[in-house]
């Protein structure tokens, strides 16, 4: 957590770790779209939830960690399906 990007990177890594263990059979394009829509909605609703006082999150009222974890989960799942 050496700089503001640190938390995002760690959230991404954790997301990939969990994403690697997700099976693909319950997901198709529609599900992905739903999840992503939901995620954005929740993200805006959460605002800058863990309330870090760094500039990047004060100006951008979305939860960067949540988004990063979500992206990580998708990435991990994509890795697994390769």
């Amino acid at each position: 957590m050496i700089n503001p990007v640190g938390t995002i990177v760690i959230a991404l890594i954790l997301g990939i770790v969990f994403g690697m263990s997700i099976r693909g059979e319950y997901f198709n394009k529609k599900t992905y779209a739903t999840i992503f829509g939901f995620a954005l909605f929740i993200d805006i609703f959460m605002g800058s939830f863990p309330y870090y006082t760094w500039d990047i999150f004060v100006e951008l009222p979305v939860s960067g960690i949540f988004l990063a974890a979500m992206v990580g989960l998708f990435t991990g799942k994509a890795f697994r399906e390769r």
Binding site: T7, I10, A11, L14, G15, F18, I22, Y26, F27, T31, T34, I35, F38, A39, I42, M46, F49, P50, Y51, Y52, S63, I65, F66, A69, M70, L73
Partner: peptide, 25 residues
């Protein structure tokens, strides 16, 4: 609904873990 919800719950858990020293969690 269970499969999409799993994604969101996991991401939320990550947020709670990483914000533990600032917010309740």
């Amino acid at each position: 609904f269970a499969a999409p919800l799993v994604f969101i719950i996991v991401a939320f858990g990550v947020v709670i873990t990483l914000g533990g020293h600032i917010t309740p969690g």
